[in-house]
């Protein structure tokens, strides 16, 4: 296995009485898009800012590109790109000028025009930053982080506060970074964002990692039961359905119909029985839905505790 780009063991950080990070272990591999997902105040930004060299830590071992970020060097800074949680742009400079300014700080920057293309701001290249929309500002922010051609990119909540279309555009851009061979560490509190973008996701809650896996397997999602829901007319006898699923719940639905929810590990068998039963008895069943547990279910289950 390749050397991890980021390696964290037993990371701890407290602010006065508050323990923000309580022992985190993590490896991020080369060319991986890794998401740290968690609610506000879970310790995401504290962790990332320790990795970026902005904050010192109270305990644990941290290595980022082979360097301890508590002792950052200019050579190390050449290799990382940072997008902070808050958009940070000089409002009076144009997109092109902003990128030229930061490009000047690096030994081997990317071509400014190429970066403008990467973040999709060709039409705004000569607009001042203050005139850009929120989503465009954020993309310029990412462009500034890319202009030094870093190996590792930190994106702290890149789409917080975006409307859905701006979020989609930002996602396309981040997904495009994969083709450049960058390693990306992303924090977010949107489950969907982690699911769409990340190769692996760590869910953190109250300063600890509570789950770490691919979005598909996260929180043993494959082990969790599937939910089958449907409605039947009022007054239907349900005798034949007793005991087919893990849980059988009934609630009164619209128009006096009965809403039934079945949680099962064997959805194929159960669906067959339900539909057979409906055909035999001539029952009209409505709003039939089969739903696998979403990442959101997993996330809420893990972070609510």
């Amino acid at each position: 296995m390749a050397e991890p780009v980021i390696s964290i063991r037993g990371l701890r950080k407290s602010y006065d009485e508050l323990e923000a990070v309580r022992g985190i272990d993590l490896d991020v591999l080369p060319r991986e898009i890794f998401a740290v997902l968690g609610p506000n105040g879970a310790g995401k930004t504290t962790t990332v800012e320790i990795l970026e060299g902005y904050r010192d830590r109270d305990g644990g071992e941290v290595s980022v590109l082979g360097v301890d970020p508590a002792r950052p060097t200019p050579a190390w800074r050449e290799r990382i790109g940072i997008v902070l949680q808050e958009t940070t742009l000089e409002p009076a400079l144009t997109v092109r000028e902003s990128l030229q300014q930061y490009a000047g700080y690096y030994r081997e920057p990317r071509e400014v025009e190429e970066v403008i293309g990467l973040v999709g701001l060709e039409d705004q290249a000569d607009s001042r930053a203050r005139k850009l929309s929120g989503g465009q500002k954020r993309r310029l922010d990412v462009g500034i982080a890319l202009v030094g051609d870093p190996d590792l990119l930190f994106l702290d909540e890149p789409t917080t506060g975006f409307d859905p279309s701006a979020r989609r555009q930002a996602w396309e851009m981040v997904a495009g970074l994969r083709d450049l061979g960058k390693t990306v560490l992303l924090t977010t509190h949107y489950m969907e964002e982690a699911q769409v973008l990340a190769d692996r996701v760590a869910i953190i809650s109250e300063g600890r990692i509570v789950a770490l896996d691919t979005p598909e397997n996260l929180g043993d999602r494959r082990q969790l039961p599937t939910t089958i829901t449907f409605t039947v007319p009022a007054g239907t006898g349900l005798g034949d359905l007793e005991g087919i699923g893990q849980t059988l719940s009934q609630t009164g639905g619209e128009d006096g119909r009965i809403e039934i929810s079945i949680s099962t590990h064997d959805p194929v068998e159960n669906l067959n029985r339900i539909t057979a039963w409906a055909l035999e008895t001539g029952l009209e069943i409505g709003q039939l839905e089969v739903r696998r547990p979403s990442l959101e279910d997993v996330y809420l289950g893990l972070t609510d505790a």
Partner: peptide, 8 residues
């Protein structure tokens, strides 16, 4: 803060 995150 952002400037501090660069090699400058």
């Amino acid at each position: 803060k952002r400037g501090r995150g660069t090699p400058l």
